[in-house]
Design a protein around this nucleic acid. Structure first.
Lengths: 334, 334
DNA sequence: TCACATCGTGAAATCGTTTCCATATCTGTA
DNA sequence: TACAGATATGGAAACGATTTCACGATGTGA
């Protein structure tokens, strides 16, 4: 492994000059610049990242936190982010949090330890007071998830609008007994905070109110994440005396579980129970019962997020909040 | 940010001693060890990775190369690898190659530049002669993909056996005109090398021969990767005078495209055309026509790969080749 | 022609660790 | 009692880059 002094020796110059060439700073004569370059070439020299980092320079690496990479929503989001960052010469470090607060801190500590220049949080496990401490170590932005009173740039989808319109859409389709499933642990939390899930729920509720309907707590399901959860939700619905005629499933995965279990039990979707997914995963169009779903603007969010981070890096100002629109994709399940 | 000397000062000891405690080397009295530990605790001290790396010690990071993270096969593979590595205290760096040789070299250069302790190649874009040069910089293993005459540990699936049995299975099901799609660029290459695709094809061919059948070149499709490719393949099949009665699709994604286009054109699957997928992606069971498919042992491979790498790290010997079995999952499409 | 700014260059300090070497203290044995 | 060997500790060099500082050469304007 050639070092900077090897290059200096070969070029008959000092390491300072070589360093200047590497970081293309001015005040180096064209002639020496070229001789350094050819020496680097000849030795196949590449600066050792660890040494540069130690001196406190940029790492050209960005961390992205997500709950789990096997969730297609996040793998596509990461993909979009990574491609944009790549174009700008940044590497991407994917950190799976598995929805654990400590794992998220791992990513934040990467910033503290100067291993990355910035962190793109697509998952939010810690309270903001904990996270904000890390802002002094580098740039942080929030993507998809969001909170009120956060002073870092946010790129997010308009969950309120999407869910409000989606609920209206269900009414238009003739449904009136609308159930609601969410990944959240409880509904009370959702009602207090101004975030992702709360906005969805608010959009849902506002549409309900406008149709002169209140909340039926029997039709609210929490902790819904997987297809398995969806199956259980379906079972719970069937056990109800007063059954909903449609359910907003919280994710395509949960929606898939619901439709699957419905089929198993010979309940017709959407006739006996409509199912509205959320995400529009690539497969959702190819399911046995193609999902009607609320498409998330994954690519748009990923690209905007990467661009925002890049602007931040070059010291440009960025919008405080960027909002992308959700879209209802009508297929067969509702 | 507290440094090692801050800790030393607070504990009233030398940096050497603190360093010994950090790396729990012997020859430190229990008393001082404790006082160092409490000093570290008090300052919230964490060793700076860049500085450790510079001194040439371990990075506790592993690179994993994959073609694309949005491909569920690879996201599950990475997931399995990451979880095992995590348990052992290693971080995982995911490198998407986008099937480009240069991107793969990026990952290998991570090894050269001491940014990772090892590389797990789940994608193989360069020739072995290029890759083997990097072995001197750290540990490399091959997962899923493989080549003949490679001197690094390999964890792979038994593609030959899987495809041989799958083809037999199709004969048992009453098919006899079997088409074959692959991601490979051409069939000639496949017949020469001893690798992933070649083994699949060999298994397919051998079963064919045993049933006294030769290859029909009209039924061989190359360059098949996406659902879109699958749709095109279906169209090409329909244009044939002598049509196959079943197709081994190369991947579930391609299989999905084929069944989708078949439905579009009112061709009954599996009655008029059977479709056999490969991978068993999580959604394959929930498609409109649930896919009969060859399941890849993703989790098993991922776990074995991580374990192998960990053994390598601790200097233990590991098997040259570890082979996991494929399994046929019978559903509705064939 | 003088004063002063700019340019080009190298020496040396610095970043935060690990590790080699030297030294001091402690053990057990002849 | 003395001495070899193990144990415990600290000092300082080393890792490979960047960056500050100093200094001579060159250019510019009055």
């Amino acid at each position: 492994m050639a070092t900077i002094s090897d290059v200096a020796k070969l070029a008959g110059l000092s390491v300072s000059t070589v360093s200047r060439v590497i970081n293309d700073s001015p005040h180096v004569s064209e002639k020496k610049r070229n001789s350094v370059k050819s020496a680097m070439e000849r030795l196949g020299y590449v600066p050792l990242p660890a040494a540069r980092q130690l001196r406190g320079s940029k790492t050209n690496t960005m961390a992205v936190t997500i709950p789990r990479i096997v969730n297609p929503f996040f793998s596509y989001l990461v993909d979009a982010i990574e491609q944009k960052l790549d174009e700008a010469g940044y590497s991407t470090l994917i950190v799976q949090t598995f929805s654990k607060a400590e794992e998220e801190l791992t990513a934040l500590n990467l910033l503290k330890n100067q291993q990355v220049d910035g962190v793109i949080l697509c998952s939010l496990e810690n309270t903001w007071s904990i996270i904000s401490d890390y802002c002094k170590y580098g740039k942080i932005i929030l993507v998809n998830e969001y909170l009120k009173d956060v002073h870092v740039p946010i790129v997010r989808a308009d969950q309120y609008d999407g869910f409000y319109k989606a609920t209206n859409f269900l009414f238009d389709e003739g449904y009136s007994k609308i159930a609601y499933a969410t990944g959240r642990k409880s509904i009370t939390i959702m009602e207090k905070e101004a975030n992702f899930d709360a906005d969805r729920f608010a959009g849902f509720q506002d549409s309900l109110s406008e149709h002169k309907l209140g909340l039926n707590h029997d039709w609210l399901f929490t902790n819904a994440h997987t297809a398995e959860d969806g199956k259980n939700i379906f079972k719970m619905i069937m056990a109800l005396d007063n059954k909903p005629d449609v359910i907003i499933a919280g994710s395509d995965e949960v929606a898939m579980g619901i439709t699957q279990e419905a089929e198993e039990q010979k309940v017709k979707v959407p006739k006996q129970l409509g199912v509205l997914g959320v995400d529009d995963q690539p497969v959702s169009a190819n399911l046995r019962i193609p999902l009607t779903t609320i498409r998330q603007p994954v690519n748009e969010m990923g690209q905007k997020a990467a661009e925002t981070m890049l602007h931040l890096m070059s010291g440009e100002s960025v919008p405080k909040v960027q909002i992308c629109k959700l879209k209802i994709i009508k297929r067969a399940s509702a």
